[in-house]
Amino acid sequence: MWPVPPDPGVALRMRTAHARARAALHSHPALGSAEAWGWNGRTLGMPVVTLSRPAWLRVASAPTDQIADTYWNGAIEAQDSLPPSIPRPQLWRWHDWSDPTWAYRSELYEYVADSTVAAPAVITAPPNLPAGWWRGVRAALEVIAAIRTTRVTIQPGFLAWAMPHYLGVPASDYATLPWTPAHGDFHFANLCAPNLRILDWEGWGHAPAGYDAAMLHSYSLLTPETADEVEREMAHLLTTPAGRYSELVVITELLHAAKQGTNPEIAAPLRRRAASILGRPTVAARGSG
Rank of each mutant, 00 (worst) to 15 (best):
L254C: 02
P170E: 09
A145G: 11
Y111F: 14
V59R: 02
T16D: 12
V49M: 12
D7Y: 00
V250H: 05
K259G: 11
D7T: 01
V122S: 03
P164A: 01
Q79A: 15
D173P: 00
W37N: 10
H236Y: 08
L91S: 06
Y174Q: 00
A258G: 09
A121N: 05
L108H: 02
P164C: 01
T50G: 09
R232W: 04
R244I: 10
N195H: 14
I251Y: 06
N263E: 02
L57M: 06
R42V: 12
Q66E: 02
A285V: 10
T282V: 15
Q90T: 13
D212L: 14
D7Q: 07
I154G: 12
C192Y: 05
P63H: 07
N190V: 05
A214T: 07
V122W: 08
I144L: 15
R272N: 02
T116D: 02
I86F: 08
N263Q: 11
M1D: 07
R232D: 05
A125W: 05
R272D: 13
G45V: 06
Y174N: 00
W102M: 13
W161I: 04
H236F: 03
F158K: 09
R13T: 12
R273E: 13
L278K: 06
S27F: 10
G157P: 00
P130W: 14
I277V: 15
A68V: 15
G74M: 01
P156T: 00
A113H: 11
N190W: 05
N128G: 00
G205I: 09
L221A: 09
L238N: 07
A160E: 11
W201H: 06
T124M: 11
I147Q: 14
V122Y: 09
T101L: 07
A285Y: 00
R273T: 09
P83R: 13
S33M: 14
F158R: 12
R13F: 00
A17N: 07
H95N: 03
L159S: 08
L167E: 10
S81C: 13
M163D: 00
D80T: 11
